[in-house]
Amino acid sequence: MVTSTIVRVQRAFACTAEAVYDAWLDPHLARRFWFATPPSGEIVRCDIEPGVNGRFTIVDRRPTEADPESHIEVEHTGRFLQLDRPRRIAFRFGLPQFQSHETAVIIDIEPQGDGCELTLRHDLGIADDETLGMLERMEQGWTTILANLEQALKG
């Protein structure tokens, strides 16, 4: 039996499910949270084509781990598989510089009173040493992205 490695993060938001959903597809807002690495990282490109089979490319410039004075640009790419406003966004996700394959991400947004709760699941693929080594880093990354999303929604 083949086992996948799944990253799962959740966050409650004090705004509507529609506002949270729309933020993922709006390039002007998305550049404030998708893959942004504060305090010294920045998004240098944010292209989003909303729609099933629409693509995105987001490039962030961040300090290298070895030398905080030098920077690397990291490209994040994807293709939307499912868009069901305001409840679900599913997409293929790639890091061309670091991985030869794409992975799958599903974002579910549940309205709750005046707010909503977002659950993100990222299927890293077959559970092997490489994906298990990425698990904690990916969980931390998505947790940071959701915290950045909350700040972006606050304006």
Results as ranks from 00 to 15, higher is better:
Thr3Lys: 15
Thr5Phe: 10
Arg8Ile: 04
Gln10Lys: 11
Arg11Met: 11
Thr16Gln: 08
Thr16Pro: 06
Tyr21Asn: 03
Ala23Leu: 02
Asp26Glu: 06
His28Met: 08
His28Ser: 09
Leu29Arg: 13
Ala30Gly: 01
Phe35Trp: 15
Gly41Arg: 07
Cys46Trp: 03
Cys46Asp: 06
Asn53Arg: 15
Gly54Gln: 05
Gly54Tyr: 04
Phe56Ser: 08
Thr57Ala: 13
Val59Thr: 07
Asp60Arg: 05
Arg61Phe: 01
Arg62Phe: 05
Pro63Asn: 01
Pro63Ser: 05
Thr64Val: 02
Thr64Ser: 08
Glu69Ala: 14
His71Ser: 14
Ile72Asp: 12
His76Asn: 11
Gly78Ala: 09
Leu83Thr: 07
Arg85Tyr: 02
Arg88Asp: 03
Leu95His: 14
Leu95Pro: 13
Gln97Tyr: 04
Glu102Gly: 07
Thr103Arg: 04
Thr103Pro: 03
Ala104Gln: 13
Val105Asp: 07
Gly115His: 00
His122Ile: 02
His122Glu: 04
Asp123Arg: 00
Leu124Ile: 00
Ile126Glu: 05
Ala127Arg: 11
Ala127Phe: 02
Leu132Thr: 05
Gly133Val: 03
Met134Asn: 12
Glu136Met: 09
Gly141Leu: 03
Trp142Glu: 00
Thr143Leu: 08
Thr144Met: 11
Leu146His: 05
Asn148Phe: 06
Asn148Thr: 04
Asn148Gly: 07
Glu150Met: 12
Gln151Asp: 15
Ala152Lys: 02
